[in-house]
Amino acid sequence: MTTMPKTDAKVGAVETDRPPALVVSGVSHAFGDKKVLDDVSLTVERGAFVMLLGLNGAGKSTLFSLVTRLYDNVSGQIDICGYDVRRKPSQALQRLGVVFQSRTLDIDLTLLQNLKYHAALHGYSNRDAKRRAEQALDLVGLADRAGEKVRALSGGQVRRVEIARSMMHRPDLLLLDEPTVGLDLGSREGVIKIVRDLVAKERLGVLWATHLMDEVLRTDQVVILHKGVVLFNGGVPQLLTQTGAPNVREAFRALTGTQTSIDEAA
């Protein structure tokens, strides 16, 4: 994986070998006696699109909670751009953007008011916040709706605003937790396209958690998480060769031993 210098390199901070966007190494977590994650390791390089595949309850949300430092990892280490989330939480979180599965926007406020609030959470002054909000909305094709209330938007548009929200501070790592759940086909494709474009243009690392197999492209890196254990971590061709399956769906089924299709199960 080559690390291409980002645009800020020209301002003087030339980084030749920058650490990956996300490194999760040997992370285990348990709630009481129930082990939710068992020795999970994965890496998201800058510019990589990593699909985290798993059924509901596989431990995806717990992994996201640990990376976003909702609670600390009990064992193992999580680094965002080389910053340990436990020891350097501010630096780590500053480089992280998240799209949560659940709704996070105030529906009674306008898009701009929502985004300005989230820019403030990252320390941007009012003027900066407004500019960044407008630019971020432009990024997801909703610039002309800035003054409207979130309530007036469709599900797919709300998702796009949330992607804009998570991109306002230009993170190096973007986490998305089941971002397409509940969206119709057209909106799903729109959301996926936006994020894939971002990966290509912004060289940011994306960890996309989903149970929808048809969202995987051949060029993606795939991590299969099942009952808290990483069963596979590698490219799609490797996954198909290893399992001898014709597609990702069959490969997933073969690896996890689940009878039902993952799409039906969810």
């Binding site: 976003t68 659940s102 989230h118 320390g123």
Partner: peptide, 18 residues
């Protein structure tokens, strides 16, 4: 439950300050 608290808590500022 909706996730608004989570977006607050992923702010890089110290949690006690938030």
């Amino acid at each position: 439950e909706t996730g608004t608290m989570r977006t607050l808590l992923v702010s890089p500022f110290p949690r006690s300050f938030l």
